[in-house]
Design a protein around this nucleic acid. Sequence first.
DNA 1: GTCTATATGTTGATAGAC
DNA 2: GTCTATCAACATATAGAC
Lengths: 210, 210
Amino acid sequence: MKKDDSTEKRILDAARKVFYEKGLAGARMEEIAQEAGINKAMLHYYFRSKQKLFEKIFLEAFGQIFPRLIAIVASDISLEEKISQISTSYIEVLTENPQLPLFVMSSIQRDAGSFVSGMIQDNPLQPSLVLGKLREQIAEEVKAGKINPIDPRDLIVNIIAVSVFPFMMKPILTGLFGMTEEDFQAFISNRKLSVSDFLIRAVSRADSSQ
Amino acid sequence: MKKDDSTEKRILDAARKVFYEKGLAGARMEEIAQEAGINKAMLHYYFRSKQKLFEKIFLEAFGQIFPRLIAIVASDISLEEKISQISTSYIEVLTENPQLPLFVMSSIQRDAGSFVSGMIQDNPLQPSLVLGKLREQIAEEVKAGKINPIDPRDLIVNIIAVSVFPFMMKPILTGLFGMTEEDFQAFISNRKLSVSDFLIRAVSRADSSQ
DNA sequence: GTCTATATGTTGATAGAC
DNA sequence: GTCTATCAACATATAGAC
């Protein structure tokens, strides 16, 4: 209930929780109000409509995971460092917020597809340019005999996949492997290290002498 | 509209399409009926309730991706072959049905969490046993100097992640990288080969002489 | 700013004719 | 089996008192 916080913050916290769990269509304004410890009418007083409130939560969520990726890929560090930073960065954020990726992706497909193109266009670092730079960096390291050739899109997708997917699978993992919450935390904690190694081995040349 | 098919099949096809796209809460019986080219009342005549219709679609979807994995992991082939078979198998199924993973995972979290444990318990091949066997197989190949040590759960999660995740990202990928539908198909088609290589390099020992 | 009461629209589900 | 018409429940949103 968080009685200390302002009403607006309480609403946003409650909306985040309910929307993350049930999505736009599944969420009920009544439940959000209850979760925030206030009345249903207050939601409309502060945010006008369910749609507006949802957009606030979605944009916040999307902005939390997308610029992070672009910034690291565009940065001036080695490929190995990029791989390591992206994976550990995502795993750390999602450890605090496991529902984030499933919420963002289902929202994009179902309710917020149009917002994505807008946010990307507004981004100062254009993805296509960043991708071109990454392609060059890969070409250099291939030439130096350090790594195997790989499509930059494949590289990025694979890094994100192994970093993010376990969180999306959390309900299945806990059911399938009979994990408790502590088991899952330990599983993830271990992956912070192992995922980077896994990825770097996958891109590195097997017969490299480095 | 598929006028040739039976009404029941038309309903199931329509329900699959709408539920995959919008989930249980977002789907409308009216829209399913329209998509099937029939009346809303017919849905209830054939399936009693929205919930029952949804369960039919969900169980069908879940059964399509889960036994596939267990069967391959439990089979009597080399680790390298398992990796290759799992990834290519998933990529092929999802090429025909890209929305499947997002639908299944969001449904599990939001509407069908209880069904999963039931389906797993009914499965003749118990996941925990299969996992134990895989652990042994990994230990053997580590001992033979072929691969690096890895938690069997990590291995499975990583294989599924790089195989399945690109399909869940499809809306982002097409927006982010400006892919057309044909671009995406080509991207996926290329991954059928590259993903296996990527995974096998990741698990194989770098200084192996094989 | 916060509440209660209510208007308005939508939706899943059923009744009943054919 | 298939349709039209309708019910009952619910959810978003607003009006208006405090």
